[in-house]
Amino acid sequence: MSTGISREQLAARIAQDIPEGSYVNLGIGAPTLVADFLPQGREVILHTENGMLGMGPSPEPDRVDPDLINAGKQAVTALPGTAYFHHADSFAMMRGGHLDVCVLGAFQVAENGDLANWSTGGPGAIPAIGGAMDLAIGAKSVYVMTDLLTKNGESKLVTSCTYPLTGARCVARVYTDRAIFDVTPDGFAVTEIFGETTFADLLELTGLQLKDATQR
């Protein structure tokens, strides 16, 4: 047993929580992995903000179509039932509250649900937002997928974000390699712990007041 789970295991865990029939946007990077673990037979429609519903897996190398890409600018395929649309319609789907779930990466998530994931605010850093701000305020459920700690060992779950916000009070749940945290009016509630990590470890690693809501 290790202290947590792998990125693939985490993607598989998130996939379990995506309900049948939902419209889902998976953010660039690790969240994209969730698509590979959606249970067989569960019909979930993937939205990509560059203008497609019904996105399928990546094609064979000789079947790459440069006109058919996802938001991460990777080659994808179109499943039967796919629809294409322009950017204003694509973001109307988010802002208008039509998208059920989005899974985003994060630099920091605060205990009130604030999300920071677009800029570390450092000098010389080139900022890039893309669709993150629209997704953060638009999807009905905003999930974050991230390691609990930064490469320097700092907690990405914080009392309040020090990096520039992507969205205020928008995150519902944070899936990390160590545990799952629900955002509640009283701060983070731990609902599931992975590997050999203990609740006491989480208290120490995050330095936050956490509620133990695990069922075990």
Binding site: E49, H86, H87, A88, S90, F91, M94, R95, D114, I129, G130, G131, A132, M133, D134, I137, G138, P164, L165, T166, G167, A168, R169
Partner: peptide
Amino acid sequence: PQGNLAERIRAAGAGIGGFYSPTAVGTP
């Protein structure tokens, strides 16, 4: 933000003088 970019372009083409968007509230 991408959605505001799209909607600002759409607004220009549709003769809309301005609009209110929830995107970026609470951010820099």
